[in-house]
C-alpha cells in the first residue's frame, strides 16, 4: 500500500533576466561613413528611440534596440 499523498512545496518560478543585458556593442563608428549611412535606418532607429520623447528612458532604448533587430 503506497503511503498517503503529501503536499510538498514547489520550486518557485525564477527568470534569468541577466541574459537580456547581453547586447552587441555599437559598431557604427567602425563601419566607416558609407556603410554607416547605408545602415542609417538601423542607427537612426536606435538614436531616434533615444532622442524621441519616449516614456521611461531605458525602456524606450531597449525597445528601440529590439525594433532595430526586427528590421
Amino acid at each position: 500500500m503506497p503511503p498517503a499523498m503529501q503536499p510538498v512545496p514547489c520550486k518557485p518560478l525564477f527568470f534569468d533576466l541577466a541574459l537580456n543585458h547581453l547586447q552587441f556593442p555599437d559598431v557604427s563608428g567602425e563601419m566607416g561613413a558609407r556603410a554607416a549611412a547605408a545602415a542609417a535606418p538601423a542607427a537612426a532607429g536606435q538614436k531616434g528611440a533615444q532622442a524621441a520623447a519616449q516614456p521611461g528612458g531605458l525602456t524606450g532604448f531597449v525597445k528601440g534596440l529590439w525594433g532595430w533587430g526586427g528590421k
Binding site: 552587441f24 559598431v27 557604427s28 567602425e30 563601419m31 566607416g32 558609407r34 556603410a35 554607416a36 547605408a38 545602415a39 538601423a42 532595430w68 533587430g69 528590421k71
Partner: peptide
Amino acid sequence: SNAALTGLYAELNTLGQAD
C-alpha cells in the same frame, strides 16, 4: 585592409540585428 575592416563591421552590424 581598413576598407575590408569597415565592410566586415558593417556585416557584423547587419548580422547582429538578424541574430
